[in-house]
Design a binder for these strands. Structure first.
Length: 491
RNA sequence: GGCCCCUUCGUCUAGCGGCCUAGGACGCUGCCCUCUCAAGGCAGAGAUCACGGGUUCGAAUCCCGUAGGGGCCGCCA
């Protein structure tokens, strides 16, 4: 049977990194098995619609390369898959359940304001208050309504919701691919709402209907649905449908060990893209959060991932998102980039003051050491100017055995050597410096150190001293050499 | 509160009864190399496998319990 997976995001306005991982796993599983990957927009909550969010979803999938085979913008015999456009379908299936007695109409009104706990309104729910206020302690009374009462209510035009009728006897089990056998007593399962007053289905219903209608073979989603799945299983049974393989995924946690959230830093794909993380590095990293290849390989290209990904190696324990490791992996992917691509990635991070510098060269110099391109401005700022003052103490370096006096002398000599240099390019500069070191019996490090400090004002730079000199140009180099000597003298 | 799930170095993880005096990666520390730092190479610190009981000749691996964490219990998904 052909594997069919789906990604079913709701339009929240941004692509959460946890959702992206779910999409990635579903996509990889489909691609790995020559199956189909379907995109379905779950926009059944009218109150929470966020403008433009469908575009964000498309854009996120486009930039990460998680292409779908069927869905809203691809047409196809089974598309488009936007739940708000499929209301008639859910209504039709709700009618079937109503007819078979697996569901019933509930006419209970919304909660009285006074009944709400006075101060438990910690976080006001986002939108939809009038319609979606829960019925506190719904006791199932409408499930026992007589036929005549229902008819009377209907005739009066009373609004209603459709609820799933769950027999509270016994228990319901299913086998999750990751978590194994899950059994829940039916008395734990409430008569969940299938169709809301506004005629839209809830996730609980639309999801089951669509997954069946779209022939989804493997339902992959976050494990927050694990304990609701028995209710879905009951729905499948009520319809007489086979249920798909369930693959619940462990959560991704934030640094504090709590669910990854905006408060704790970046959670949206766009946040990482803005910082200069490569889509393939992001995918590589999140693939490893909850899954491992069974080998010691950690660096993966997307084709590698397709070849290697296996749902059998997904773990159960939640994983903490670690941006430091993401950054390392990003650095690995940056190193693998062709020079032009790397420069293209870096370009937007160069500050405008660097206009006089050969940025292409700079890019090739730093490609091997950039992990997060957003660090670039700070890395290269010294090239624009030695803003502020650096401490002459920097000239003293134990490892290279440099002293102030020695540096002062070296700087003076270097000024002579460099101003006399016929050509200004990397090999010439390097040759002159090593020759000078040889003459004076100095190790190259002892020559480079004072030069680096004078040119950059810092002990750590993203490129070697010679590269800096070349990039800066002779005039600026000589000027900075003077500045360094001034500092050493006045200190 | 009820129910469900999870628990190996700081973090991601390997491990599916003996190969584990628990392996790899990130990070950290040190050394080497080099035009400094970085990168690269090498080395090291870092986990009594949450805890307590079993089962077994033998348990990180199986069973039970406890604790901690997470999730669900919405006309949200």
């Amino acid at each position: 049977m052909q594997v069919r997976t789906r990604f079913a995001p709701s339009p929240t306005g941004y692509m959460h990194i946890g959702n992206l991982r779910t999409a990635l796993y579903a996509w990889l599983h489909a691609r790995r098995n020559g199956g189909r990957f379907i995109l379905r927009i779950e926009d059944t909550d009218q109150a929470r619609l966020v403008e433009d969010s469908v575009r964000v979803i498309y854009e996120s999938l486009r930039v990460t390369g998680l292409d779908h085979d069927e869905g809203p913008d691809k047409g196809g015999p089974a598309g488009p898959y936007v739940q708000s456009e499929r209301r008639h379908i859910y209504r039709e299936y709700a009618e079937k359940l109503l007819a078979s007695g697996h569901a019933y109409r509930c006419f209970c009104g919304k909660t009285e304001k006074q009944e709400e706990p006075p101060q438990s309104e910690d976080k006001p729910r986002e939108g939809g208050e009038e319609q979606s206020a829960p019925i506190l302690g719904y006791d199932g009374r409408c499930s026992r309504l007589a036929e005549a009462e229902i008819k009377a209510n209907l005739d009066k035009g009373l609004p209603f919701v459709v609820r799933q009728r769950i027999d509270k006897e016994g228990s319901t089990s299913f086998r999750d691919f990751i978590y194994g056998d899950i059994t829940v007593d039916n008395k734990q399962l409430d008569d969940q709402i299938l169709l809301k007053r506004d005629g839209f289905p809830t996730y609980n219903f639309a999801n089951v209907v669509d997954d069946h209608l779209m022939g989804i073979t493997h339902v992959m989603r976050g494990c927050e649905y694990l304990s609701s799945t028995p209710k879905y299983v009951l729905l499948y049974k009520a319809f007489g449908w086979d249920y798909p393989e369930h693959i619940h995924l462990p959560h991704i946690l934030g640094p504090s060990g709590r669910k990854l959230s905006k408060r704790e830093g970046s959670v949206a794909l766009s946040d990482f893209l803005d910082k200069g993380y490569l889509p393939e590095a992001i995918l590589n990293y999140i693939a490893l959060l909850g899954w491992n290849p069974g080998t010691e390989q950690e660096y993966f290209t997307i084709p590698d991932l397709i070849k290697t990904f296996d749902v059998a190696r997904i773990g159960k324990a939640p994983a903490t998102f670690d941006e430091v490791k993401l950054a390392w992996l990003n650095g690995q992917h940056i190193k693998a980039l062709p020079a032009e691509k790397a420069h293209g990635l870096f370009a937007r991070f160069y500050p405008p003051e660097l206009s006089g510098v050969d940025l292409n060269r700079l890019s090739s110099h730093i490609q091997g050491k950039v992990e997060k391109p957003c660090d670039i401005p700070a890395m290269v700022s010294f090239l624009a100017g030695l803003e502020g003052t650096y401490s002459p103490e920097l000239f003293v370096n134990k490892k290279n055995k440099t002293t102030r006096e020695g540096c002062l002398a070296a700087l003076g000599d270097l000024k002579g050597v460099l101003s006399a240099l016929p050509a200004w390019d990397h090999p010439s500069i390097l040759a002159a410096l090593t020759a000078y070191g040889g003459e004076k019996g100095l190790k190259t490090g002892a020559v480079m150190w004072p030069l680096r400090i004078a040119l950059s004002g810092r002990a750590v730079t993203p490129t070697g001293a010679v590269e800096i000199a070349e990039l800066l140009g002779r005039e600026e180099v000589l000027r900075r050499l003077d500045l360094g000597m001034d500092k050493l003298r006045s200190a």
